[in-house]
Design a binder for these strands. Structure first.
Lengths: 352, 352
DNA sequence: TTGAAAGCGTTACCAC
DNA sequence: GTGGTAACGCTTTCAA
């Protein structure tokens, strides 16, 4: 390699003992210098710093964690890091954490309970300082062993009924309502919804808000207008949309519980030759980068990912520093972003 | 919380001592049982397993790492986890790692050298078992302290000239060539390219391949047809595209070094009322989910992210298990995925 | 102002 | 088969 000619033999990383020996002091003194504790003469301090630089010494986080200090590592459980919404959320969490020198361990659970509990166990064994859960869970019993331990946990973008944990969430119910109201204002009457699996709390709430808003205006949301996807958001979204759109009495508007599903729906419409938004209005959720690049661009509900990520991290850090767990529940507002996938209700028969 | 009524007081996690005490044996015995070493009578073994279950004991990875065992943690350096290409790559790495119970620490560097070296230091201090670098670097000197240490490193999707490290990469040069050839077959002559910053090795190679292919057909790639973005791929991509398209002699085709830039270019074209692909062909790179959802859908070069991720992890694990560092360099082939953003060269003046 | 020593939770070697 | 104990690299307390 390029540095062939240089010494690469001192491979073993220096320890506090090496520093102490070289400086002719005890390891306690070195430790104090590093942690800015105790009273060390300026001369010694300088000298020790010099040697630390010289040997490129960095204290082992592992060893220090073993003495009861933090690992400066956080865990993030999400369904899938390759889903842009969660990638954006992860980025927010990472950024906020790294400002305080925390690292982030990513755990993609695919919404599978066994993956969740596997990751949870792993994170515990690794003594992370906190865990952020942003994934759905069928059996909350899985959390029990974790909650008996001392690791702080906060929920992000998801909730578990029956488990009280600090939570940072968007008002999904209100979001569903806003979606419905936007559509109602555009005079849609036959409205459908495609949700995620029922174990995803956010989807449940969005459905509830959507449904309530429709019902309160005297319209209805019949069962055949409510569809659920499985694991594969894009593919299943498209299939469900196909089902809806080939119904004998198809909807003029579909609310998709996230942008991925909305894209699947867009593809279904395209495949059937249905024009969006003229013949069909589609509204998504999350306002990921995807929503901005489709044609037509998606009307969607935007989540403040930045804010959610940093709030979750801040709570976790406070908790891990021993602050009493004020069982906070922060509910942020989603924002309706109107683009080009929604328009006044048309009539497919006339229009098409 | 829901489990209010139950004992939650034994908060302190059980240690090997608790198990040993309860089983009336020494910690050495417990350790041996856990690690399947030594000879322990079946009776004791069963009993110890039972107690482990009962106390929900899980050995501390921290403590075990301190005795020289692995941390079962890998680090991944990428420019930005919220960029779909890297999110997909991260997912591949995570999946492969988790099959062997490794966790993944994500580090978004924004292609900034100081972030890179900060993360590198952090990962070392945390004694990760290996580091995957998929981010550009201006000053490779930053890697020097790392390479002197004992942590295995592999490069993914990027290369550093002058640093020899095991590498898993796509043939970017060939990719650039394929892009050019596709465009040339469509009879384009005035062809442009928008690359990332020069410190991104993959962009440099794609440019080289593109340029070589064009030149070898007797056409040219004049300087004003070569643009570079900055940090913000989408925004800068759009600006650069705007510059190209408002040139007095605008290109009929633009090769964008990744899908994000291609989308910026698509937006620029839309803004100028230029029709794609009739008046302008656009070709991207990466084949992320984004390429499939734009309108028109992007012709792009697909990278085998799955394969790249798992190869990188496998090399790293082998290395961390002491296998001699065969300085492998795996070059995978990119695949041209033809969608709807490229077409035979038209004439904007006639056509528009 | 400094250092000796205990302790953190494991593993591994060597006696018994 | 089983257990005692040193060692891993660090922090912290207490004495000097």
């Amino acid at each position: 390699m390029i540095w062939n000619n240089e010494r690469v033999d001192e491979m073993s990383d220096a320890t506090i003992y090496d520093i102490a020996r070289k400086a002719g002091v005890s390891i306690a003194t070195v430790s104090q210098v590093i942690n800015g504790k105790g009273k060390i003469s300026d001369k010694r301090r300088q000298e020790i710093y010099r040697i630390i630089e010289e040997l490129n010494y960095r204290p082992s986080v592992i060893a220090s964690a073993l003495t009861g200090k933090k690992t400066f590592t956080l865990g993030l459980l999400i369904p899938d890091i390759s889903n842009p919404f969660f990638a954006e959320l992860a980025r927010a969490v990472e950024d906020c954490g790294s400002r305080s020198r925390y690292s982030l361990v990513i755990c993609s659970t695919d919404n599978k309970d066994d993956k969740v509990s596997g990751y949870l166990q792993l994170l515990q064994q690794k003594s992370v300082d906190g865990i952020i859960i942003g994934t759905g869970l069928e059996d909350i019993g899985i959390l029990k062993p974790l909650l008996n331990k001392s690791i702080p946990v906060v929920m992000i973008a998801r909730e578990m009924p029956g488990v009280q944990l600090p939570t940072v969430i968007v008002d999904d119910y209100a979001g569903g309502k806003q979606a419905a109201e936007h559509l109602l204002e555009l005079h849609h009457q036959r409205m459908a919804i495609i949700t995620e699996q029922p174990k995803v709390s956010s989807s449940r709430e969005r459905l509830r808000g959507y449904s309530d808003a429709i019902l309160s205006r005297g319209f209805e949301l019949p069962d055949e207008m409510v569809k659920k996807t499985g694991e594969n958001l894009l593919k299943d979204g498209k299939s469900r949309a196909l089902e809806l759109l080939t119904d004998s009495n198809p909807p003029s508007a579909i609310f998709c519980c996230n942008d991925m599903i909305a894209i699947g729906t867009l593809q279904a419409a395209k495949e059937l030759g249905i024009r969006v938004p003229e013949q069909l209005s589609i509204i998504g959720f999350d306002n990921t980068i995807l929503a901005a690049v489709t044609e037509p661009a998606l009307t969607t509900l935007s989540q403040p990912t930045e804010m959610m990520g940093s709030m979750a991290v801040e709570i976790l850090i406070r908790l891990s520093e021993g602050e009493s767990a004020a069982l906070e529940r922060t509910v942020l507002k989603p924002d309706l972003v109107i683009r080009s996938s929604t328009a006044a209700a048309g009539n497919r028969a006339l229009d098409g």
